[in-house]
């Protein structure tokens, strides 16, 4: 159990953060907090991709792919973290902020129409119409 957590800490952390993000989306009555929950969920997924790309050589962290390998790596010698998941995460972060902006614009509009950001009040106001 402890050994499992020690070797897979990033994934365990990801699962906990996924849970907290999901809880915020379900339980928060305030729409802004719901959207923060979505963002939190997202960062947990980014952590998964970054952890997948991470590589260790004999217990020591490998190199980051943003610096060129100065020494000629021998064939099959894996010393740099994989750049491909990093690129996917970079794309996802930018798309994520764009979606957050659209969500927040919708929230501003909802407040302008109904005068509330609370989900339960919103349901009542809409039921009255």
């Amino acid at each position: 159990m402890i050994e499992l957590l020690a070797t897979r800490y990033a994934y365990a952390l990801m699962f906990v953060l996924l849970g907290i993000g999901l809880y915020m989306v379900i339980a928060s009555e305030n729409l802004v907090k719901k959207l923060i929950g979505v963002n939190l969920f997202q960062t947990a997924i980014f952590l998964f991709f970054v952890a997948v790309a991470y590589v260790e050589v004999d217990g020591e962290p490998g190199g980051s792919p943003v610096v060129p390998a100065t020494t000629e790596p021998a064939a099959g010698d894996l010393i740099l973290a994989s750049p491909l998941p990093h690129v996917i995460v970079l794309t996802a972060i930018v798309v994520g902020i764009a979606l957050t902006a659209v969500g927040l614009a919708l929230i501003v509009r909802i407040h302008a129409e109904y005068g509330t950001l609370r989900e339960d009040t919103l349901r009542e106001v809409r039921a009255d119409e």
Binding site: A10, Y54, V55, G62
Partner: peptide
């Protein structure tokens, strides 16, 4: 710490 400084910079600036 997980060898992704580029992702970290984007996350710090955007997140």
């Amino acid at each position: 710490l997980l060898l992704a400084p580029d992702v970290a910079m984007t996350e710090a600036a955007i997140g």
